[in-house]
């Protein structure tokens, strides 16, 4: 904590963590319902694109955000319907979603703005930044935790709500049971597919939020804006042992490496590409480490 960089690095970590957190929490629902949802990445990108577009068109941040989220929920609905009711392999449909999202956003961007590259919007309102009153007097915490935009705090709230839904409601009980034994669920007179579809829609909702944060924060849309964050979120679900708190920790670690690499870029002569790759390498190493750990735990 003595380096002059440590506080801004941590402050940024909290910000960077938010999209991971949103996507991973939504992915937790699908994971618990027994589905490997690789579409997180695509859903985030859809949310990122449409929320910034709609905000620019309407000039209203709240309306734009809502419509952006609805777009990714709609894509999630199609993805879920094809996977669950038309019985397509969910891995393939997830892959299709991930291929569709960059294609669709690029085509639409070109059609609307005649531009396949970065699209800047001048009229995007700044995301409201919030100061947390309680910790205002605590110097370190205030510097790190306070002063973020409202989506950051919404992501924390989402984690808490998700934990309550998963562990404290009938829906959560049924959701987890679906992942554990869908046939048993049927014998209880419940419909596993309906529960799974609900989980996919939830993941669409949170991925929409996570994607929106990326684009609205910059007031711009960049092709492939999500840059694999959906995939890292998927890894965070496993590293977090499929628990909300674990996911928070895993997301924090990924965000921290990204935040550090952003700073290190400016102060060393190590090639920037290499430094920017560190979050992905950390993901890879964490994944390998986790598998090894699981293997030995299973052996005991």
């Amino acid at each position: 904590m003595h380096s002059p960089y440590s506080i801004p690095v941590l402050h940024n970590t909290i910000r960077i963590m938010t999209p991971f957190l949103f996507a991973a929490i939504g992915g937790l629902f699908t994971e618990l319902a027994g589905m490997l949802n690789i579409a997180l990445e695509g859903l985030m990108l859809i949310g990122a694109f449409f929320s910034v577009i709609f905000t620019a068109f309407t000039g209203n941040l709240f309306l734009g955000l809502t419509l952006g989220i609805l777009s990714s929920v709609l894509v999630a609905l199609i993805f879920g319907w094809i996977s669950l009711y038309l019985k397509a392999n969910i891995f393939i449909t997830g892959l299709a979603t991930n291929l569709l999202a960059p294609g669709l956003t690029t085509v639409l961007a070109f059609q609307i703005f005649g531009n396949k590259g970065v699209i800047r919007f001048e009229n995007i309102p700044n995301l409201t930044h919030i100061t947390i009153p309680i910790i205002r007097r605590i110097p370190l915490l205030n510097d790190i935790l306070s002063g973020h935009n409202f989506l950051v705090y919404l992501s924390w709230l989402t984690v808490i709500i998700a934990a309550i839904v998963i562990y404290e409601t009938p829906f959560g009980l049924r959701l987890r049971a679906t992942g554990l034994n869908p046939r048993a669920i049927e014998s209880y007179g419940l419909k596993p597919r309906r529960i799974q579809l609900a989980a996919i829609l939830i993941s669409g909702f949170t991925c929409g939020l996570g994607g929106s944060m990326l684009s609205l924060e910059m007031g711009a849309f960049v092709p492939n804006l999500t840059a694999g964050r959906g995939w890292i979120a998927l890894v965070a679900i496993y590293l977090g042992s499929k628990r909300p708190l674990g996911i928070v920790i895993a997301s924090f670690v990924f965000a921290l490496t990204e935040s550090i690499s952003n700073y290190v870029q400016g102060i060393t002569s190590v090639p920037a590409d290499f430094i920017l790759a560190t979050p992905y390498m950390v993901t890879l190493l964490a994944m390998i480490g986790w598998s090894v750990w699981q293997y030995y735990r299973a052996k005991e």
Binding site: L173, A177, L180, N181, R183, A184, S187, Y188
Partner: peptide, 8 residues
Amino acid sequence: HFRLIPQY
């Protein structure tokens, strides 16, 4: 055949 969730 039992229709139970062993983890529950």
